[in-house]
Write a protein that binds this DNA or RNA. Sequence first.
DNA 1: AGGGCACCTCAGCTCGCCCTCAGTTTGGCT
DNA 2: AGCCAAACTGAGGGCGAGCTGAGGTGCCCT
Lengths: 224, 224
Amino acid sequence: MKRILVIDDDVSVRNFLKRGLSFEGFQVETAESGETGLRAALDRAPHLMILDLMMPGIDGFEVLRRLRAADVQLPVIMLTANDEPEAQMEGLNTGADDYVIKPVHFDVLMARIRAIERRSNGTISNLLRFDDIVLDVGAFVAKRGTRVLTLTSREFRLLQEFLEQPERVMSKKYLLDRVWGEEFFGDDNVVEVFVSQLRQKLEEQGEPRLLQTIRNVGYVLRMQ
Amino acid sequence: MKRILVIDDDVSVRNFLKRGLSFEGFQVETAESGETGLRAALDRAPHLMILDLMMPGIDGFEVLRRLRAADVQLPVIMLTANDEPEAQMEGLNTGADDYVIKPVHFDVLMARIRAIERRSNGTISNLLRFDDIVLDVGAFVAKRGTRVLTLTSREFRLLQEFLEQPERVMSKKYLLDRVWGEEFFGDDNVVEVFVSQLRQKLEEQGEPRLLQTIRNVGYVLRMQ
DNA sequence: AGGGCACCTCAGCTCGCCCTCAGTTTGGCT
DNA sequence: AGCCAAACTGAGGGCGAGCTGAGGTGCCCT
């Protein structure tokens, strides 16, 4: 049974989530402050953390920061108020995997949890990163550093494929299957064209190349 | 995060309140006159207003009167000098929710704010907000800034879906499921038609577009 | 019964994206 | 160094996604 840790200073939120998540078959532990939550996260090693942003004392950001500093990789869903989009971005930048707007709609939260479950076979989150590239798949936002990239859907999908398996060399054939679908019968050259376009957008400001060509084999996302 | 608007002509009071309230976790905006304050109240739709009584030009009473005349229901705390008890009564009669005596003791003010919060959490229906769009789901009222939108139920339901997950890209298929129901077997085009209608109503006065199209992916509510 | 409104369908149009192609560059091998 | 194949990339045509005005249908209210 999957264990979820809920950290929120508001007892009604804790109870609401505990009841709902228990009903959905999770084992739920709660903490009412950043300090106790952090300790619980380290001691109990839950599978997933649901973390309120605004708390007295150690707030959500700080919990997340310390957690990541301790190199704990468990997926985290942030709870944020709906009128602070900057906070959502900061949360994601600090290393949250996803966020849900307060007041929490339970089915929305469940959808996020399912999404993370589906992906977290390798603790992969809804937020993909490699070096200074960040992809928020849910929001369809791609960044290099602070610069927002304007990608088409195909470019985005291709970059996503690389980010899901960095350091792994992928052949054009493989990429065609994954990104274009198996029913595509065109030429390999499409992949070359899109890699080329991606590179132009990724290296617009003279950033180092991360999308490397392995001649006669394929492409790989790695630092030189 | 709750947003509070402070209207006071005295810069030291504004700074004092801004510092204290920010520390308490509120997002604080300030205005130094009745005119600018009134405009800010209408534009930014804060959750709470703290309003000084004695101001040159439009005074606190007048701000309150015009606010209520515009049918704006946000809670207001009046700041009054200690030697004008009749003014306090008049303030309450004009529609203020509470008053605090100057010079302001910060913990007294906080107690009043908490009291109003507690009161309004039960009674006031939950509002969805994004930028200057406000949806009162319980009352079936939608606004952009001060302008009330005349939406049909389907349009309202669709906009609600976007407001519940701003910054989240939603495919037409997903929207069909959520808004039209899974038993709907018509064409995706319905979504396009309703998005189009929503945009016409949301941007009637030339406001910036918040409902963005992500080609081949879906729609998203975000600031460009 | 009839009018009005909301919802959905349809069709024509626009425009952006994707793929193709061809000329150029790069890299590896003899 | 020279050759060849692989990879790169700029340009453009075609197609389909998305937009929107118009109209038909059915429901509700009077």
